Amino acid sequence: MAYLFPRLLPKAASELRDEYLNRSVEYLRERAGLSHPAMFYAATGGIRLPQQRLAALREAVLTCAVERGYPTKPGRRQAAGFDIEVATILARDSGIIPAEAVAGDLWACLSLVVLPDVAAWRFQDFHRDRVLGTDVTRHVFGRLWWRAHLLYEEEGGREDLYASLSVFGEAAFDQIYARRTSIGGSPHLVRAIVRVWQGLDVPSDMERALLRDFLKRVLRLNAFMSFDSLPPEVLDQELEVLFRESFAATAGTPVAA
């Protein structure tokens, strides 16, 4: 069932963000809630999310943080584990649909009303992009929903999604989603990229340059090939060829399978 999630008016979001700057996680936990005078819902498209489901979402995300040391600042491994776990929750259990997920004010409501303490725990600087939803691909929770949405397959299990989410870091996903009108807008293509990347032995110091070159090649090929119409095995073969061309251009030697 498609639910309408609560949203937060931009002016109120900015005021809350300013108020919460430099506040402790413990302070923000006391301010967390399920309602706010500036909350609103889209006029059409579904049923308003029941408050008990919003409360359950907060509890699930908070539990993920607590398991990784909340309220103490997380280390890199803890933060990465939190991101993967919450991405899975948002994709599988939240009920957020793509038409809602593009709304920055939805994510602002989650990070500033429902989960301000967790948002501050994950990103201590409370940067505008992380909490206001001005750039969904950088939002503390919005970026996780979009990653999982691109990788989640109904026939796959929880572990399949976990494995896929761990292949690329945030910077790599930023490169993919920045091309959302061509590459990042196709879950079929993104899943294939992840599958093929997993099968390659890529030196860590080459990953960023290799991915950048590869995505340029995909964009060029996209001009006359419909990736979404290709069966997975055929698409994988096409992408493997492009990856090897990119590796040869970047390193001067073929990549090992």
Rank of each mutant, 00 (worst) to 15 (best):
A2W: 04
Y3E: 01
F5E: 02
P6E: 07
P10Q: 08
P10C: 04
K11D: 13
A13V: 03
S14H: 14
L16Q: 08
E19M: 13
Y20G: 04
Y20L: 09
L21Y: 11
N22V: 09
S24R: 14
V25T: 15
V25R: 15
E26W: 07
L28W: 10
L28M: 11
R29M: 12
E30W: 08
E30D: 13
L34E: 05
L34S: 06
M39T: 12
M39D: 07
A43W: 11
G45I: 07
P50T: 02
P50G: 06
Q51N: 06
L57Q: 00
L57R: 01
E59R: 15
E59Y: 08
C64H: 12
R68L: 12
R68M: 08
G69R: 05
P74H: 12
P74T: 11
R76P: 08
R77S: 09
G81S: 10
F82C: 04
T88Y: 03
R92L: 05
A101I: 11
A101N: 09
G104I: 10
L106K: 10
L106I: 13
L106A: 06
C109N: 11
S111G: 11
S111P: 03
V113T: 02
P116E: 03
D117P: 11
D117K: 13
V118A: 08
F123I: 07
Q124P: 09
D125C: 10
T134P: 04
R143S: 14
W145Y: 15
A148M: 09
H149R: 15
L151I: 11
E153L: 12
E153D: 13
G157Q: 05
A172C: 04
D174Q: 14
I183W: 01
H188F: 04
H188D: 04
G199V: 03
L200T: 02
D201I: 10
V202K: 02
E207D: 02
R208S: 08
R208H: 06
A209M: 09
L210N: 00
R212D: 08
F214R: 01
K216N: 11
K216P: 00
R217G: 02
R217V: 01
V218R: 00
N222V: 01
F227V: 07
P231A: 03
P232H: 07
V234R: 14
E238Q: 14
V241M: 09
R244W: 00
A248Y: 12
A249T: 01
T250D: 09
T253D: 04
P254E: 07
A257H: 10
